[in-house]
Amino acid sequence: MASPVASKEFVDTTDASQEKPVEHEPVQAGRARDRNEAQGAPDRPLIWISTEFGAIYEAHAQSIYYLALRLLGDPTQAEDATHDVFLKAYRKMNQFRGDSAVRTWLYRIAINHCRNLLQTWHHRHMVTNADDAIWETSSVATDNPLRVLETKELGQRIQKTLEALPEEYRLLLLLVADEKLSYQDVAALTGQTADAVRGKLHRARKAFAAAFAKFA
């Protein structure tokens, strides 16, 4: 039987401006420890994995990590972000009231968290300023299938392509790719109507196809 919590709903009360910062070890120290642990057995057993929160982590960690990875473009930052998102979720579990699904709630925390990170000086100087018009006037046909030869390079190419897109399109494509989210969920997460999501999705697909062809 599924965990009772996993099937119930949380209210999203996460506000990026009001969130308590996640206090964890300095990044470098944490990474050094991670390397040590990767070489041997963990220091203590993962007792929480068998709890309700553990069930939530097991069910949604992959999606949250992938979203963070593709939004931030860096595996180490995505790792830190996923950790922080679940820690925030753990702290806010008592705010469980039932206006949105757990998955949507976690996505919202993750999107806010990644946006905060992307607003830092470092990221402001790394993000590309892609112009929507470049992609929308592209001659690349969107009805052609997207082909890729090197499986191992697929992730890198998707990353480059997403980075070349406006943030709105990037987020939209990543959310729509999750089959467990409805258009209504995506609309709620992106602050627009489901019809607007459908309309923008068409343009986002076109932009993706054009950028993907460019990075061949």
Binding site: D34, P42, L46, A61, Y66, F86, L87
Partner: peptide, 14 residues
């Protein structure tokens, strides 16, 4: 794209 196992380890500590 697998989830790095280090995340669960770090969460465990946190």
């Amino acid at each position: 794209t697998p989830v790095p196992p280090q995340i669960a380890e770090r969460l465990n500590e946190s």
